[in-house]
Every structure is written in structure tokens, then in C-alpha cells.
Simulated scan of single mutants.
Amino acid sequence: MTTDVWRIGGELEVGRLGFGAMHLPTEPGPERKNALAVARRAVELGVTLIDTAHMYGGGANEELLAEALHPYPDDLLIATKVGMARSAAGEWDHDARPEALRDQVEQALRRLRRDHIGFLQLHRIDPSVPLADQLGALRELREEGKIGHIGLSEVTVGELDEARRTTEIAGVQNRYNLLDREHEPVLAACASAGIAFLPWRPVAWGDSGAHAEVASVAAELGATATQVSLAWLLGHSPVILPIPGTADLAHLEENTAAARLRLTAAHRARLDRLAAPA
């Protein structure tokens, strides 16, 4: 049995099953009221890691979390991401110029009502800016005390290696789930280095439930396919910190209950065969 907690950067202790806030509606009205309730309920259920980003509504998601949860519990870590910005045409695109990163961090601090962001991730590597310049800017912000640990998103093993030559990397957020293990080599590199691996799309957006083997295991355990998928992730590697997202209170309860589900060795062997590692 693996531990239920992880220390990001060897320092920030969080429960391994987090919450992705991307799907929370931010527009005024009943849906926003429900989104606030979902965020608060996640914390009530013991979630101590919430993931957001500047890209989620241009900061509106960060503001929603602050409205819902500030003043924050001492054990709650809200991780956010920078490095994407709207173009003149209104489309999201890379923008990890040092001055843009600094501006987005300042905005995130204001929106989250904090003077320090414990875990700040580069949402995407900007191909038009040297990686050392992008990470150098984040390293300077860390030295100034504005951010703590630094993470990456959607990177290869080579990019992770290159990044670590510039600064310490505490986490990687790549697409990964029971049925999609393209980034298994990146997970292995993270496990070897003690780097947290935060899989986004951790339950394949419902596809797991359509798979007969997953449905069979779920039925045998009296669980849902989503819970089985999350439990598989938690048992697959101790560095995995899934961040399932939802705007539905019932789904939130379902997701968080997955942390208590234990797969047998036989169940795990059946699930391991579903997708060959890349």
C-alpha cells in the first residue's frame, strides 16, 4: 500500500488525490453559486491540493477559488499555472516571455489574495523563448519570495532534463490515465527523481466506464469505473497526484471516495494490461 500523502518539492505536504478546478463555471448566476459550493465541499472532504491556471477564464477561475476559500486553511495548497495568454484575435497562445510570466504571477497573487504561490507551473513551454529564459524568470520570482516550487506541464523526458539544468523542478503535469499511458517515460523519470506527477484527464473523460474490463472490476468492488481508474493511478506510482475535476457535487463525492478504494493484486494485473506503456 502506498502512502496517501506526498511532499511537493520535499516540503509541501498534500493529500495525493487533489482537485482540478478547470471545469468550475465562473459566470454570475446559479452555476457560479454551485461552483463555489463544490470548491468548499472539496476542502471539507479533505482535499489539500487544488489546481487552477491563468488560462482558465483569464484568471476568473483563480478569483472564484479565492471567493470560495479565502482565508485559506493552513494545509491547503492552491497551485496555478502561467505561460499562456490571449492573442489580439482572442485566442489562447504561448507567452512565456520573462516579462509576461512576471505579470501573470503578479496577477495570480492578486486574484488569489496571496503574497506567495507555493507551487507555480509553466503551463506550456513557449517554443519562441529559450527554455532557460522562461525558467530563469520563474527562478528569479522564487528568489524574490513570490513563488515557491516550480513545475512544468506537457513536457517530454528531454525537456524535463533540460529544465532541471536551469532550476529545480518539483512537479510535472502531463495527460495520463489508465487507458492513455503515452507519457509513461515521463512518469518514470519523475519517479526516479522524486518529482510529483500530476496527471490531467486522469479518468479519460468517462471513457473508462465504457471499457468492459474496467466495468467488470468496478462491479466486483462495488465501485464506479471512475473510482477504479483513480485508485489504479494512486497505486501505480507513489509520485502520482491525480487532479480530477468536476462541477458536480455528487461526482466530487465519488472522486474523493476513490482514495479509500484498494485494488487487489489480481485486479491491478487485469487493469495493467489494458494499455501498454509507451
Rank of each mutant, 00 (worst) to 15 (best):
V5N: 14
W6A: 08
G9N: 09
E11D: 14
G15E: 12
G15H: 15
F19R: 03
G20H: 08
M22A: 15
L24I: 02
E27A: 15
P28E: 12
G29P: 13
P30H: 07
K33R: 15
A37C: 11
A37M: 07
A39Q: 09
R40G: 15
R41N: 12
E44Q: 13
L45E: 04
L45K: 07
G46L: 01
L49I: 00
D51H: 13
T52V: 06
G57L: 06
G57W: 04
A60M: 05
N61F: 05
N61I: 02
E62K: 10
L64A: 14
E67K: 12
A68W: 02
L69Y: 13
H70F: 13
P71S: 13
Y72A: 09
Y72V: 00
D74T: 04
L77N: 13
I78D: 07
A85N: 10
A85T: 07
R86Y: 07
S87I: 00
D95A: 11
P98C: 09
P98G: 13
A100D: 10
L101V: 02
R102V: 00
Q107E: 14
R113E: 11
R113F: 04
R114T: 10
L122Y: 02
R124N: 10
R124T: 10
R124K: 15
P127K: 11
P130C: 12
P130A: 08
L135Q: 05
G136F: 06
R139W: 03
L141Q: 06
L141V: 01
G145H: 08
K146P: 03
H149K: 13
H149M: 07
I150Q: 10
S153L: 00
E154K: 05
E154G: 12
E159D: 12
L160K: 06
D161M: 02
T167I: 04
E168Q: 09
I169D: 12
A170W: 06
G171T: 06
G171S: 15
V172W: 05
Y176K: 04
D180A: 14
D180P: 01
R181Y: 08
E182F: 10
H183F: 05
P185M: 11
L187F: 11
A189I: 01
A189D: 09
C190F: 11
S192Q: 14
G194Y: 10
F197W: 01
G206S: 13
S208L: 15
H211C: 07
A215V: 00
A215W: 02
S216V: 00
A219Q: 07
L221T: 01
A225Q: 08
T226W: 02
T226Q: 08
A231L: 01
A231S: 07
W232R: 04
W232D: 00
L233E: 03
L233D: 05
V239C: 11
V239T: 04
L241C: 12
I243Q: 14
D248L: 04
A250W: 04
N255P: 06
T256M: 09
A257H: 07
R262K: 15
R262Y: 03
L263E: 03
A265L: 13
A265K: 13
A269C: 03
R270W: 01
R273M: 03
L274V: 01
A278V: 01
